[in-house]
Simulated scan of single mutants.
Amino acid sequence: MTRAWPRPAAGEPVAAGVGAAGQGEEWAGLAADRMEPVAYGLILVLYRPQHEHLKHLLTLSAQCPCLVVVDNTEAPDPGVAVRLEQARIPLLRNFNQGGLAGAYNRGADWLQARSCELMFLLDQDSVLREGFFEAMLGACAALHGTPFIVGPKIYETQLDRYMPALDPAAAWPRPVALTESQSGLVPSLCVISSGSAISMAAWQRMGRFREDYFIEYIDVEYALRGWHLGVPAYVNTAAVLEQKAGAIVRHGRHYSTHHPAWRRYYMARNAVHALRCYPRRHSLLPAGLLLLCYQALGVACFETGRCQKLLALLIGLSDGLRGRLGRLEDRHPVLAARWRRV
């Protein structure tokens, strides 16, 4: 039997509570004497938000009344808190502790305290197409009562195409092409975090995002962990999220993303570490290493600052193989300072 996920009454405020001591977080927003249970909620992560991000946020609050914002900026702008308080939107300050993973974890704690059954994740740069929540809630209703992760179909605007799913049953990671007219759920080895819906049953079985990854591959590791623990991941082809990955430049059939060196470090390190964590899928690590070689070739052929970026890939690969995780600034402070300037 399927069920509909009821919406909280439009305009009904959802108030912030008091943060857990010792977790390095500051909670702002509305004070409340009680916590109202909610059927589903949205965690929106901000990082150095601009005016257009706050405008987008206010639009989202009308689409998903149970919205909690996590400001992940190291030195938050007090004006953001003022605007959200005026709009009666709860705000959590995370100060980039644990990176994007930490921000999602803080928001999940807030929703879990309110007995939320389904939580959506979103970053500030993602754009949801019309009917997104209706399509996602409809798909999740069909899975109600089971642990699951459902991600949207991703449209990469710079490539003008939908990104493929990955067949979880294939011996070697096999892309599954997604089209405009497709509908239904497609099992996928992984889904991106932004736009995804995670059932609370899945969250309770799988646990939190890895904060020692900080950023990059936190969603890949989480989905692989889910398959390992019996929690499937799907792409909902009826819901579309538009994204821009880096600053993509086409070169014939190929393209380069022009990510900075510090992002390249996290990509290489976390990719290798995540794929090694689940040895039952023997083909993942060789496939991941081939992908890294392809990315390194793209950097060497097409990108500026290639020496620093290739160095970042090599050090990230070494750290990932040895399990040396955490923030780049803590692991390699001199290189971090140099790469942040590039």
Rank of each mutant, 00 (worst) to 15 (best):
C307F: 08
A101N: 01
L58Q: 03
A103E: 05
G79R: 05
D125G: 09
G226R: 02
E12H: 10
G22T: 08
Y155D: 01
A177M: 12
M206W: 03
P173H: 14
K309D: 13
E130Q: 08
R174A: 06
W110M: 06
S183E: 15
A141M: 10
E134A: 14
R263I: 08
L313Q: 05
Q182Y: 02
G102N: 09
L311H: 04
G79F: 01
S181F: 06
Y255W: 07
T146D: 12
F133P: 09
K55C: 01
R338H: 02
P260C: 00
L67P: 01
M119C: 10
Y255K: 10
A261S: 03
L159D: 11
H51Q: 03
T146V: 09
G323D: 12
V18Y: 07
A239L: 09
A247L: 04
H144D: 10
L292N: 01
M206D: 03
L92P: 04
R263K: 05
F120Q: 06
A202V: 02
R341F: 05
P76E: 11
G226S: 02
V80A: 11
T146F: 08
L289W: 03
R250I: 07
P168E: 11
L289S: 01
E117Q: 15
A87C: 07
A4R: 14
Y266I: 02
P279Q: 13
R324G: 06
Q63D: 10
W262C: 03
Y162R: 12
L60C: 06
A9M: 14
E180V: 07
R208C: 13
L290E: 07
A337D: 03
S194R: 07
